[in-house]
Write a protein that binds this DNA or RNA. Sequence first.
DNA 1: ACCTGTCAAGTCTGG
DNA 2: CCAGACTTGACAGGT
Length: 335
Amino acid sequence: MIVRLGYVAMSVELEDASPSKTMTMASFSKLSDREGGLRRLERLAEQNLHNTLRLLKHNRYMGVQVYRMTSKLIPLATHEELQDWDPYPALANAFAEVGAFIREHNMRVSFHPDHFTVLSTPRPEVLRNSVKDLNYHVRLLEAMGLDERALNNIHVGGSYGDKEKSALRFIDQFQTIEKRICDRITLENDDKTFTAKETLSIAEEVKVPMVLDIHHHAVNPGNELMEELWPRILRTWSLFPWNVKHANTPIVLPPKIHVSSPKSLSDPRGHAEYVEIEPLLKFLSNIAGSTPAIDVMIEAKKKDGALLKLMDDFRALEASGEPVRVIDGGSLEWL
DNA sequence: ACCTGTCAAGTCTGG
DNA sequence: CCAGACTTGACAGGT
């Protein structure tokens, strides 16, 4: 089983490479020259894309093939007051360059629209804004020329006092969203509301892959055994249209899981600086043989630093004779 | 150079 | 019904 590790948004190794520089609406509004302000936003976006490319090159150098891009590439992109602004023509080259690098090096990239995207909401305006935000993320991927292996991972959302009803509302509202957006969605279990089992049932219903977060599952486990859920989670990936089309080829998209460690006893849901290897080892040994490959997204304060430390831990395991073979700086083989 | 409050967005809790 | 917590990197405005 090939295991590839990835990390989120920014590097602690590469200096001065923020991909999420921004401007607040408050300061944009104060500008006398609106057009000039828009050009400034476009320059910020260009820098963000340039730094994303630098991060990807840094990833390539490290041997890291999995990466979650930041949602903040274009500052204020979905803000109500800037709906007449089309930043894409000015950024076409920057997007193309990022996309070309990703394709050339077969990297797996994704986005994770944040918790303001809630398809279970009972409020129509919140649903509208959520779809708008999803559309923004899809446009970014399209501008990069990435195929449907580049996905947007979201949570189910709030429960509003009736989780069952909210799950049904999620499903109903999901069906109204245009296909090019739905085709790019994965669903992740969250740390206090929708458990792995509940998220999985919804993912099966709307036919999207499920991303399992094993830390969320530890703090919000529900009462289902992972041994029973895992085959179903794998199935959501094998039913993914791209994978159906390319079954048994090297370009199938492996399932993905998220890993993080509790920040402290008092804040068990928070993310620690680094990731403890033991729970991951336990999980990998449980699922070894069930899939030829798996991608593991590291969610830790130390970002790529946490990934590198985890790889060191794997090297130590290999040295002590454990059935692990480190392939390069970001991937290994589970023997 | 460094510190602190604020930020576009949603939901939940508790008063 | 409303304020504050949640969570986050970075801005903005101050010293």
